[in-house]
Amino acid sequence: MVDVAAIDPFVFRLAIFVLAIFVGYYVVWSVTPALHTPLMSVTNAISSVIIVGALIAAGPEDMNLSKIFGFFAIVLAAVNIFGGFVVTQRMLQMFRKKR
C-alpha cells in the first residue's frame, strides 16, 4: 500500500483542480448558447471568491501593508460579486416565458 501520509497535500489539491476542470468542461458545454452572456457574468461573479484571500489579509487587528492590499482587494472583489450577480439576475429575468 502507498503511505498516504507521505503524499504532499498539494497533490490532493491538484486532483481537485484537474477534476474541477473536467466538471467545468461538461457543465459549460451543457449551457444553452442563448445564455452565454449570463454565463460570462456569473463566472465573473463567482471567480471573485478570490475575496477569501483578501478577507484573510484584512483580518488582523494591527495595521500593516498587507492589510491595505487586502482592503483594496475586498473593494474590487465586492464590486464584482454584487455587480456580477445583480446584472446576471437582471438578464435572466428577461428570459422568462412570455404570454
Binding site: 489539491r13 481537485i16 483542480f17 484537474v18 474541477a20 476542470i21 466538471v23 467545468g24 457543465v27 459549460v28 463566472t43 465573473n44 463567482i46 471567480s47 471568491v49 478570490i50 477569501v52 484571500g53
Partner: peptide, 8 residues
C-alpha cells in the same frame, strides 16, 4: 477558489 478557478 481552486474549484471556481478551474470552472471559470
Amino acid at each position: 477558489l481552486i474549484i471556481t478557478g478551474a470552472l471559470v
